[in-house]
């Protein structure tokens, strides 16, 4: 077990290093000269030269990359003398456009994205798994068909269309919800909840649709397994046969994709956050892309990759606990 964990963690570090290298390459080598962008409107060749010098942009690429990586662990200082700016330990870079270290920008906005992700996850797991279960157990009935039609709609309707539609109906027409406005939980829990409700529903709808279809297919497959027949031949009551012998094998794969989806969502829901004006990591990413604020884009990319890679390891560990066949032999 310990060896398994160590080897997986070594893999995580390696992958993150590769992601680092890749994002660094893409954003700092292929995109337009950062110095020109930072320089702004009143630019002179001398100024550009000075910025280059300050940021170490004239150094060889490998040196620049190593500086970036060491900044992650030890922090780094941009520029020299009076204009020097320090970027503290997990230094993902410095946004000269917002005059803030990228790490700070991310941590400021992460709670919003986490709230969006957690709320949506609870909703989509509940609706998706229950919907899929009803579909599988009442296969071919009116229940099954309508659940699957709704799921098909959830998969095919683009996020932003559904978001705008929902906002129009619930806020403008029916006036069931107030216009979205950021309110901290401690100040007004009701308002806070109302503010997050629509993003949760929009995100959950798309995911729940996928989960419902997956759950339905898995349960139907599992019900045809020989061991389910054995369970029936033993004389177990029908609901025990389903609960013990069909659900666990059928839901284990759902756990796997849930881990990946949830980890991916922690990196920010670009469209949903933007449509509902939530100031999360996703909206920040969208804004940074619009402004071409490279250090921020790069930082978010790295963070999202880290979430997915770590999420993957967590999924593996959970899977080990759920499925005895993948358990590493301790003997």
């Amino acid at each position: 077990m310990a060896r398994f964990l160590v080897s997986r963690l070594a893999g995580v570090v390696l992958i993150l290093l590769l992601v680092c290298l890749f994002t660094f390459g893409v954003f700092f080598v292929l995109s337009p000269d950062p110095a020109v962008q930072i320089c702004g409107k009143n630019c002179t060749p001398e100024l550009i030269e000075r910025i280059r010098d300050n940021l170490g942009l004239d150094e060889p690429l490998l040196t620049q990359f190593l500086t970036f990586v060491s900044g992650l662990f030890a922090g780094r200082t941009y520029g020299v003398g009076e204009s020097a700016t320090h970027c503290a330990a997990p230094c993902l870079g410095y946004s000269f456009q917002s005059s803030q270290p990228v790490w700070e920008m991310i941590t400021d906005r992460l709670p919003v994205s986490v709230t969006v992700a957690v709320g949506a996850a609870v909703l989509w797991l509940l609706v998706g798994v229950v919907g899929g279960l009803v579909g599988a157990l009442k296969r071919g009935t009116w229940w099954d068909r309508s659940a699957m039609v709704v799921a098909l709609a959830g998969i095919s309707i683009p996020n932003y269309v559904f978001a705008l539609l929902l906002q129009y109906v619930l806020v403008v027409e029916l006036e069931w919800l107030p216009f979205p406005q950021a309110v901290p939980f401690s100040e007004d829990p009701t308002r806070w909840f109302q503010n997050y409700l629509m993003p949760w529903i929009v995100l959950a709808f798309a995911y729940a649709s996928v989960y419902a279809r997956l759950t339905r297919a898995n349960v139907i497959d599992t019900l045809e397994e020989n061991y389910v027949r054995t369970a029936r031949a033993k004389g177990l009551p029908g609901r025990l046969v389903i609960r013990r012998h069909a659900l666990r094998p059928a839901l284990t794969p759902v756990v796997t994709i849930f881990g990946m989806d949830f980890a991916g969502l922690l990196g920010g829901a670009l469209i949903t956050e933007t449509v509902f004006g939530l100031n999360g990591v996703g909206k920040m990413t969208a804004d940074s892309i619009a402004r071409n604020d490279q250090p921020v884009i790069m930082g978010v990319t790295l963070l999202a990759a880290a979430f997915v890679v770590v999420g993957n390891v967590v999924v593996d560990l959970v899977y080990t606990a759920l499925d005895p066949r993948v358990r590493v032999r301790s003997a």
Partner: peptide, 23 residues
């Protein structure tokens, strides 16, 4: 259900797929 497994028990062909791998 009370007859199955109690008065009449079955043994199936493929013992691997007939046993639940999770228990």
């Amino acid at each position: 259900r009370r007859v199955r497994g109690d008065r009449v028990a079955m043994v199936f062909q493929d013992p691997l797929s007939s046993l639940n791998p999770y228990y």
